[in-house]
């Protein structure tokens, strides 16, 4: 196993999928000769040719609509949307069609496809490039939504998504594309959808998070360990379906929960997690479930993005609150 970055894990996943499954095609803006604006598809066009890795016109609804049609006609497309902030023209194709073609056709056309999109802030990207609107997709029945935070998961979730018969939205935390490194298994490696990852075990507080917030939660947990508070850190990684079992077991153990996400607070996935815990572990709670999230303001231009995104100070405050309640 080689040590790689998260984006290399994504790249490895796509390369493996293209190698192993002739139905797989990659399409999107700049994914071909240029290898993607973040280099996620680096070298794939050269290796697999322009009939497997296809630069498309600049049109998100066209890209996703084409991918759905390809899936209907027997291919396994991986469509790239260059930034999540640009996915909205494709929203109708995703919500109205990809998500419900299986139901509408009673299983005849399951729309087996993967839509990749870098999301979130933290890289001082230009305006409107840093959205974190995963909840919009989690809310839609018929879609699966995953977010890797390690290079191994990046590959494993991608290959599981390619193999999965249902449409999967695969969101990539671009802040940690290159800052997170780790070993990536060779060959075909799957991480099952619907399984969370407990990256740190603890007894006192459960930190629930995903994506670029995982390293932040880990850092906070480490700091609190020095103060005698042990935090369990859960990387949800599959936002739909949720691994309820892992989350609830942890809450029953610690009784205290802090949810950290970059997306705005109102109707963010933290709200759903809070409701889930209330439904299934209410009597185990020792303190109100506390959320540390992006504020309910439009994602700012990068000069103020650090004020917008959860940071160590806000997470510390939340841990302090739930442990002293």
């Amino acid at each position: 196993m080689a040590v790689k970055t998260l984006i290399q894990g994504i790249h490895d996943g796509m390369r493996e999928a293209l190698r192993q499954d002739l139905r797989v095609v990659v399409l999107g803006e700049d994914v071909g000769k240029n290898g993607g604006v973040f280099r996620a598809t680096e070298g794939l066009w050269q290796e697999f040719g322009e009939e497997r890795v296809m630069d498309t016109p600049l049109a998100e609804a066209g890209i996703v609509g084409a991918a759905i049609g390809m899936a209907v006609n027997g291919l396994r497309p991986i469509a790239e949307i260059q930034f999540m902030g640009f996915i909205y023209p494709a929203f109708e194709q995703i919500v109205t069609h990809a998500a419900r073609l299986r139901t509408r056709t009673q299983g005849q056309h399951p729309a087996s496809l993967v839509i990749r999109a870098p999301y979130g802030g933290g890289i001082r990207a230009p305006e409107l490039h840093s959205d974190s609107t995963e909840s919009l997709f989690v809310h839609i029945p018929g879609l699966k939504v995953v977010v890797p935070s390690t290079p191994a998961d990046a590959k494993g979730l991608l290959l599981a998504a390619v193999k999965d018969p249902d449409p999967v939205i695969y969101l990539e935390p671009m802040q940690i594309y290159r800052s997170v490194k780790g070993e990536v298994p060779d060959g075909w490696h799957e991480v099952p959808l619907g399984k969370a990852r407990v990256l740190r075990e603890g007894e006192d507080v459960t930190l629930i998070t995903w994506g670029a917030m995982v390293p932040l939660a880990e850092k906070c947990a480490q700091a609190w360990a020095g103060r005698g508070i042990s935090c369990e850190v859960i990387d949800v990684r599959s936002l739909y379906p949720l691994d309820e079992e892992t989350i609830i077991a942890s809450v029953k153990k610690t009784g205290r929960v802090v949810i950290v996400h970059e997306a705005p607070k109102t109707a963010g996935l933290g709200a759903e997690l809070t409701a889930l815990i209330n439904e299934q572990a209410f009597l185990w709670l020792e303190a109100p479930i506390t959320r540390v999230t992006g504020f309910d303001v439009p994602v700012p231009m990068f000069a103020l993005e650090n004020a917008f995104r959860p940071d160590q100070e806000r997470v510390d405050r939340a841990i302090s609150y739930v442990t002293s309640f």
Binding site: V25, E51, A61, G62, V64, G65, A66, A67, I68, G69, M70, A71, V72, N73, G74, L75, P77, E92, Q93, T96, H97
Partner: peptide
């Protein structure tokens, strides 16, 4: 039902035929 949404999909299905 939502107007014109079938068009990109027909295009994609045709694309798959061509690729195959």
């Amino acid at each position: 039902v939502p107007i014109a949404t079938q068009m990109p999909q027909a295009m994609g299905a045709a694309w798959a035929s061509k690729l195959k």
